[in-house]
Design a protein around this nucleic acid. Structure first.
Lengths: 337, 337
DNA sequence: AATTGGCACTCCAGAGTAAGGAGTGCCAGC
DNA sequence: GCTGGCACTCCTTACTCTGGAGTGCCAATT
């Protein structure tokens, strides 16, 4: 349907439009890229591309602009991921290796990615459902209140307050803590519910209510797992692009954890980097943005996702390169710690 | 120098400009506020106010706009903090009391404040320097790496990775943990350095290097305290106001922890709510914004600050009311947990 | 002495008009 | 199937013009 030259024209249109942000016409194309044909021929090709929905004109007698469908074709068949330069790789490495805990790793990653791509970066914390228990701690913080602290193998630390019956002895707490740790150490979070089911029966009758309270909070934290932690950075980069009135919508979307989660999408179908373009996004406020995302993890184990959000009119090859590289380095850093 | 009527005129100008965002003229003033005098008289007063630098005109033959100096006078002498409505108070209370840990309290607070004021809210985590140690935990996460987890009386949980010599026994770790806890429990963070100074001497010779490593990380975390944690929310509200090109600058400033810290300013000079107007701010990118901030804490103990950032042209009385109210409620919530 | 109405003046905002130019679609010729 | 030519469209920019809001000043009034 589309011969090679038409594809080349589409590629040229995307590249020019991305770099100039202005509708591109047949003459400019013929000048800047040596396609070996005249503007008139290009016009004919453009007419076909437009008919098939890959490009559109803002108004009669203007140049052409890629549609979402056009970008999609570009990403799928007309471009290759652009590897980062050596200097960039080195910068990533040194910047990330300075991190001293998980919060810091995630914080540095998200800032790094935002700076590298000059867009908004989004990073999800290593998912609880794919982690395992390293240690459980119970700390009394006040009469009738315990702090449950949960440390995962990925270094993530979860904390949760528990209301307990008054008059709980130090000894009972110690006992419970020991029980929990022997029960749970090293367990994947999926296995936790089964492992702790009979916990109340293992403690003295007086401590049953406490055990039950701790258990319910524990399960709530892990299994329902309703608060996947996720952060973003680089909002300022949005203001640089001309988003006109939709900037507000984008900012609103970014502040909603839920939207952010949906944005990164399901963890990948094996392909390294996934791209969502414009209306392919689930959220209405983000019709004119694209998301480039990838899984990251240690070895074969996928921990979570990270990505970049920007205007549909973005430099996909470079952005995909940056996302892929950062995802790999984060994996390495996490593996090392 | 400025009689009552001139002050009334200034107040009217500020109020009208804040609500309409347009330069206000003498006629409009005479119509909307019953000042009991004619527009001509008001014009004379305005000429005086302008001469003294309280108001300015964008261009000849336009209405007047308050200057930073004008807002300052308004805040200091012409307005009173506007208490929140009962409904608003109740909403705050229920919203905040649903929080289940410190992260959650801070997160809810910042979102609440942003929503309440329709501006950007900034909340600092309870300062480490004013907290005390509740519990110290050492968890091995891999060969040669320990995770130091520190729990404060305010419920804040700090984590930090420690590189240790290899071949550390479970027993040594347990010993060190016990030592740390007995040394430090209940101590204010200012007292920590002195208390742990002789720690290496209390452990066996083999464990000295580990003890030293733990100690240096601990001190680094607490005393240097170089990373005051601080969060913001409501960036989307910035887009609603017309910040023209400076929006980018403001967003950039917001993403810098350091700038954010300076923004909230020193912990208060006893007055409940402090206001920084336009050029009074330390940061250049924020010349056209104002910051309304307050301390929060439990009882007499100040823990940290929170506040709101918006255009200089903001509704100061309401914003101050919201900041004051939220600061109080956060204190109550923290006291209760 | 303070206040007021009148008046000429300034200057922005918005609407209308015109010229320029980039780009298109179509067609006939190669 | 490609190309050059040509008429046409319509955006962009600049310019002009007018209406109106607002000012500053002054002479009259209280």
């Amino acid at each position: 349907m589309l011969d090679d030259r038409k594809l080349a024209v589409l590629r040229a249109i995307v590249e020019d439009f991305v770099s100039t942000n202005e509708p591109v016409g047949s003459k400019a194309l013929a000048d800047r890229h040596n396609l070996g044909v005249s503007p008139a021929t290009i016009r004919n090709d453009m007419a076909v591309l437009e008919e098939q929905g890959y490009i559109a004109q803002p108004h009669t007698s203007a140049g052409r602009v890629p549609t979402d469908k056009g970008y999609r074709l570009f990403v799928d068949r007309l471009s290759t991921i652009k590897p980062l330069s050596v200097a960039e790789r080195r910068a990533i490495e040194t910047f990330l290796s300075g991190a001293y805990d998980l919060d810091d790793v995630v914080g540095r990653t998200v800032r790094l990615l935002a700076q590298l791509t000059r867009q908004v970066a989004v990073v999800q914390y290593p998912s609880l459902t794919r982690s395992s228990v390293r240690h459980v701690e119970l700390v009394p913080v006040a009469e009738g209140r315990l702090l449950l602290v949960l440390i995962t193998n990925t270094g993530r630390v979860e904390q949760r307050l528990i209301e307990t019956p008054a008059g709980l002895s130090e000894e009972s707490i110690g006992h419970l803590r020991a029980l929990l740790n022997t029960c749970l150490d090293g367990l994947g979070f999926g296995e936790v519910p089964a492992a702790v089911a009979d916990l109340p029966e293992k403690v003295g009758p007086d401590d049953r209510p406490v055990a039950a309270a701790v258990l319910s909070v524990l399960l709530e934290t892990l299994v329902e797992n309703h608060e996947e932690k996720i952060v973003f950075a680089g909002a300022a980069n949005l203001a640089a692009v001309d988003f006109s009135q939709s900037l507000r919508e984008v900012l609103v979307a970014l502040e909603e954890q839920v939207v952010l989660m949906r944005l990164l999408g399901e963890t990948g179908d094996s392909s390294t980097v996934t791209v969502r373009i414009g209306t392919e996004n689930p959220d209405l406020g983000l019709r004119s943005t694209s998301v480039v995302a990838a899984d990251y993890g240690v070895g074969d184990l996928t921990l979570a996702r990270l990505g970049v959000l920007g205007p549909t009119r973005m430099d996909y090859p470079s952005t995909m390169g940056a996302v892929r590289a950062v995802a790999r380095y984060v994996g390495q850093i996490l593996a090392g710690s």
